[in-house]
């Protein structure tokens, strides 16, 4: 891109972090409230797309040398493996459990759920697949 995009770049540097923080919040808010891995992943992907828009593909590849297809695979693997974890406890596939624990930093009675692990898988998959799609369309400049 040749156009003068100082404003876009400066704004992006700030906004990206706001979006990423919000996506993390959405990710952890999931399960009992609106949020979760899917929407968190989409928001993260939107932050990444913003980065790719304001800085060109080449420099982004240097900054973020991530293979998004592998990321998708790992996310899927985590999600499926969490579902299969229930085999160990003799519960049906995809069963989830949660409990309340006292953790030092997060205060008493923090809820920990295995669904978060599943959501982590979903998060990685969504980010990976969205970026793969967008880059596949965007990389072709000719």
């Amino acid at each position: 891109m040749n156009m003068n995009d100082v404003i876009l770049r400066t704004a992006t540097k700030v906004i990206t972090f706001i979006i990423l923080t919000f996506s993390l919040y959405m990710f952890f808010a999931g399960h009992n409230n609106p949020g979760g891995g899917f929407i968190g992943g989409l928001i993260t992907a939107s932050a990444l797309v913003l980065l790719y828009l304001s800085f060109d593909l080449e420099s982004m590849k240097k900054v973020l040398p991530v293979n998004y297809i592998a990321m998708t695979a790992i996310g899927l693997l985590i999600a499926v493996a969490t579902g299969m974890g229930s085999f160990l406890f003799g519960a049906p596939f995809l069963s989830h459990a949660f409990g309340y624990y006292d953790l030092p930093l997060f205060g008493e009675k923090t809820e920990l759920a295995t669904a978060v692990l599943f959501d982590l898988g979903v998060y990685l998959t969504v980010v990976g697949i969205t970026m793969t799609i967008i880059l596949a369309i965007g990389e072709d400049q000719t």
Binding site: F38, I129, I133, A136, I137, D140
Partner: peptide, 16 residues
């Protein structure tokens, strides 16, 4: 919606 999103993006690339 997710399924049709995936399929639509696939067919757009395919059409291109």
């Amino acid at each position: 919606i997710v399924i049709s999103f995936g399929v639509t993006s696939f067919i757009l690339v395919l059409a291109y």
